[in-house]
Nucleic acid binder design. Structure first.
Length: 273
DNA sequence: AGCAGCCTGTCA
DNA sequence: TGACAGGCTGCT
C-alpha cells in the first residue's frame, strides 16, 4: 500500500515503541518469498539482537541491530506493523516478535511485502546500493541528472526505485499535476526548470501528506493504528471525471506501465518535439 | 518497453 | 463474476 509518506508515518510512530528493546523470541510463518534469507534464518538472526535505530530509505524501513546487523521491512501493498501485548485477532499475521516490553507483529494479507535480515553493513549495502536517492532529500541537480538521460515517460521514471526512492502511484500522479507536467512526457524532453519544479512539487506533496499521516485509500494505518487523511487533498488521483482544482477541466484516466494514471488534460498538456 | 506473476480483499 | 488495488521482479 504505502509510499514514502506512509512508510515515514509508520517509522515515526513505531520507533519510540520498540527502540532499545531486545528481540527475545521470534515466530514466523513458512513463507520463504516473504521472509529472507529464509524464515528460519530470519528468526535466528533477529533473536537476541537489540534494536538500536530505525531509518528509512524510500519505501524501505531499516532497523539497526546490535552486532552490526540489520532488519529491513518493505510493506509491499498491504503490509502492516502492529505493536500489542498479545497477538491481535486478525488474520494474515506472518511474524511475531517478543520484545522486552511488548510484542511486534507483521501482518500482510497479500504477502507482497518483504522482511529481511542482513548480518553486516556490507550485506545491506548490496540492496540499498541499487536504490536511487531518497525522494525527500535528492537535490534538483541530481534529480535532473538521473531523469534527463532517460527516454521513458516521466511517470515511469518516477516509479522506478533505482532512479529515485519512495515515489509510488499516488504521489507520481499528484506531483506531476502540481508541476503541470504530462505523465507521458519523455524524461529527456524536460528542461532543467521543469525538472526542478517537479522535484520540488513531489517533495511538497509528500511533506504535506506526511503532516497528515499519509494517504489512506483503502486501509493504511500507521504503527499507532491511525489512518492518514491526505486522500482528502488528492487533486487527480482516483478523481477521474471530476473537476481539476486548478482549471475545472475533467480529470482523465489512462494506463501507463500497467498502473492507473490520473491527470488533467488541460494543465498537463504533453509537449512534443 | 511491456506484461505476466506474485496474493487476497473489495467493490461494481 | 470480473475488474481492480497504493509494489516489485523477472521474463520476453
Amino acid at each position: 500500500m504505502p509510499e514514502l509518506p506512509e512508510v515515514e508515518s509508520v517509522r515515526i510512530t513505531l520507533e519510540p515503541q520498540i527502540i532499545d528493546q531486545v528481540i527475545k523470541h521470534v515466530e514466523c510463518a513458512d513463507y520463504p518469498r516473504l521472509l529472507k534469507p529464509s524464515p528460519r534464518g530470519l528468526a535466528g538472526g533477529l533473536t537476541g539482537k537489540k534494536i538500536t535505530k530505525m531509518n528509512r530509505l524510500g519505501k524501505l524501513l531499516i532497523l539497526s541491530l546490535s552486532g552490526n546487523a540489520f532488519f529491513t521491512i518493505h510493506l509491499g501493498m498491504t503490509g502492516q506493523l502492529i505493536v500489542n501485548a498479545q497477538k491481535p485477532d486478525a488474520g494474515h499475521i506472518h511474524l511475531a516478535a517478543r520484545l522486552d516490553n511488548t510484542m511486534l507483529f507483521y501482518r500482510d494479507p497479500r504477502r507482497f511485502g518483504r522482511l529481511a535480515y542482513y548480518e553486516s553493513p556490507l550485506e545491506l549495502e548490496k540492496i540499498t546500493g541499487k536504490m536511487g536517492p531518497d525522494a525527500l532529500s535528492i537535490s534538483d541537480k541530481e534529480f535532473a541528472r538521473r531523469v534527463r538521460q532517460r527516454h521513458a515517460p516521466i511517470k515511469l521514471l518516477l516509479l522506478n526505485q533505482s532512479i529515485l526512492s519512495g515515489v509510488g502511484n499516488i504521489y507520481a500522479d499528484e506531483g506531476l499535476h502540481l508541476a503541470g507536467i504530462s505523465p507521458l512526457q519523455e524524461g529527456s524532453s524536460l528542461t532543467p526548470g521543469k525538472l526542478s519544479r517537479l522535484n520540488q512539487a513531489l517533495k511538497q506533496v509528500m511533506l504535506k501528506s506526511l503532516a497528515l499521516g499519509g494517504s489512506t485509500v483503502k486501509n493504511f494505518v500507521d504503527a499507532a493504528g491511525r489512518p492518514g487523511t491526505f486522500q482528502e487533498e488528492h487533486r487527480v488521483y482516483q478523481r477521474t471525471g471530476k473537476e481539476c482544482p486548478d482549471c475545472g477541466e475533467r480529470i482523465e484516466k489512462t494506463v501507463l506501465g500497467g498502473r492507473s494514471t490520473h491527470y488533467c488534460p488541460a494543465c498537463q498538456r504533453r509537449k512534443v518535439g
